[in-house]
Amino acid sequence: MILSVRDLKVSFRTHDGPVRAIDGVSFDLEESEILGVVGESGSGKTVSLLAVMGLITDPNATIEGSIRYKGRELVGLPPRELRRLRGNEIAMIFQDPMTALTPVYTIGWQIAEQIRAHRGVSKPKAMERVEQLLAEVNFPNPHEAMSRYPHQLSGGMRQRAVIAMALSCDPALLVADEPTTALDVTVQAGILDLVRKLRAKHKSAVVFITHDMGVVSELADRVMVMYAGRVVERGTRTELFSDPRHPYTRALLGSIPPLTGEKPRRLPAIPGSPPSLLRLPEGCAFGPRCPVRYEPCEARKPGLGASAHAAACFRVAQA
């Protein structure tokens, strides 16, 4: 077990009162496994993984629960200890490669900086490693690319550079926060291929955050669907796609246009919009938009249960 998150809660103090962005999220991650985390904006998928990285620096945030990395508790770990893990054993790929790199340094310098922060190697040695890494993420001319500044590279190339940086210290855990969202479709496919290939080579476990069901169906071993700060369904990829149980998951899958057969004139959309985290309903957060809700949904929040394929819905428990 690489990562084990139990009952994670993240809340922020705001002018309008406390906001619970993450409300009791639990999940496990095995070695070299890819976990897809799906949800719409504001569902808490990024915040929960930033909490794992220890990257929530907002002084108004409080983090509760337990995050164990290889058995070691990360919540409450001193910053210095956390820094030793970050970039070294746990690495992160960010959403927008256009802004994720410091504009005034070459990408070679920036990758070497990370290597030298964790491994006591000389600069030329670090640079050799950078060249290797850039070749690994399919830079056509790695040696030349090292001396390029971020603005001289295309979006796809920058994302490759960011991936090379994330891999530079052979992390056991890689967190990818919507790494393909800002890229166009052909480049996306290349990046997904790369993630798969690198997972096989480096044996890193990957948490892949996305709102794109298509990407999940291609890449993930297991999937976790989030809504309003809670996990609403989890299961293996096959389970989730062939037998979606939570009405939200079903609705998400229903809004993907079919590739074959007759296309619907209008894509089905989920009515309503996600609830404000400031005014969550008493019962199930998805309740107001749910086509199958009944009385229990308004009184209590449904729990997820302990089974491998589980959905937080009273209807499912009933069936």
Partner: peptide, 22 residues
């Protein structure tokens, strides 16, 4: 507040280095 500062933190750099170099 920039994204690249978050990247620098994710790299595991010290706050001093982030402040001065980035």
């Amino acid at each position: 507040q920039e994204d690249y500062i978050r990247t620098a933190r994710a790299k595991g750099l010290s706050e001093t280095r982030i402040l001065f170099r980035h």
